[in-house]
């Protein structure tokens, strides 16, 4: 047990790294993370390690601090305690746009697309730092501008195609259906060329068939791009089927970590979701 783990409740000491990730540096290493808002402790003693190609989930009742954790991981909030390492680099004091450049991209619970721009342009904004074109070249439209734009267009179309969004490329992002907007946000996050992608309730507002498709797509993203995925989701069907490791939080603290089966049977989880009650044995499903 290291010094960070002292505060934690029952957390398994083993990590849930996939076989192929065993000897590699974790893409996300969070140690004893905590944040206070005034007197309120929103998150405390949060630890997690995510391997380079792991799909992990973060679940917990409403108001447990899940989105706050995502905001801490992406530099939107500065933590009061603890540290976040992305690919081994501490993000302490970094603004959000620099944290993104370290290789972490995210989607938002309440979709945040650039609503007045086309779907294609949304993806191209995501590729911003990957497009090699100087300011002068942008203003004067030098040959390098046309070259980089053509490349960006092709790549963006490929990414849209990957999430079957080719048809809506020219439509304004704000006019797209809800489920499509969610998928577009994932594409935009992917366009930043991340090594880990955080999905904040990707299935919210989707119908069952859309959710099933999303499950396949999440796995496909991992397999194709070889990146880690960390998701918050209330749809237990999706979480239990897609995630290889799950962390459960309540009141800003991790109450347990483990494989889907372990989490499902953990009495602490059942209590967090359903409250203490005699005779209850099954948490979800």
């Amino acid at each position: 047990m290291n010094e960070y783990s002292k505060k934690m409740l029952k957390v398994p000491t083993y990590t849930l790294l996939r076989e192929q990730d065993k000897d590699k540096q974790p893409v996300l290493d969070v140690r004893n993370l905590g944040i206070d808002f005034g007197g309120l402790t929103a998150v405390d003693g949060f630890n997690i390690t995510i391997g380079p190609t792991e799909i992990s989930g973060l679940i917990g009742p409403n108001g447990a601090g899940k989105t706050t954790i995502f905001n801490l991981l992406t530099g939107v909030y500065q933590p009061t305690r603890g540290s976040v390492l992305i690919n081994g680099i501490d993000i302490k004091g970094m603004p959000t746009h620099k944290v993104n450049k370290l290789g972490i991209a995210r989607t938002f619970q309440n979709i945040r697309l650039f609503t007045d721009m086309t779907a294609l342009d949304n993806v191209k904004v995501g590729m911003h730092n990957g497009i090699k074109c100087s300011f002068a070249s942008s203003v004067l439209h030098l040959p390098s501008y046309y070259r980089s734009e053509k490349q960006a267009n092709e790549m963006a179309m490929e990414l849209l195609d990957f999430m079957s969004l080719t048809d809506v490329a020219d439509q304004k992002a704000g006019s797209l259906p809800y489920g499509v907007q969610r998928r577009l946000e994932i594409v935009r996050a992917l366009a930043t060329n991340p090594s880990i992608i955080l999905l904040d309730e990707p299935a919210a507002g989707m119908n069952p068939s859309e959710t099933t498709e999303l499950m396949h797509q999440i796995r496909r993203i991992r397999d194709t791009f070889q990146i880690a995925i960390f998701l918050i989701e209330h749809d237990m069907n999706l979480v239990m089927n897609v995630c290889e490791a799950i962390a459960v939080v309540n009141y800003g603290r991790i109450i347990t970590k483990g494989t889907p089966d372990e989490v499902r049977q953990n009495p602490a989880v059942i209590e967090a979701y359903l409250g203490r009650e005699e005779g209850k044995t099954d948490a979800e499903n």
Partner: peptide
Amino acid sequence: VVQNLVNSKEGRAIKAVRDNRIAAESVGIN
């Protein structure tokens, strides 16, 4: 100058900042 700028990656970033500052930051735009 203005039209070229608007149709370049710089212009897209500027519009992104207008449309949603938080999302723009999250995709690495200063």
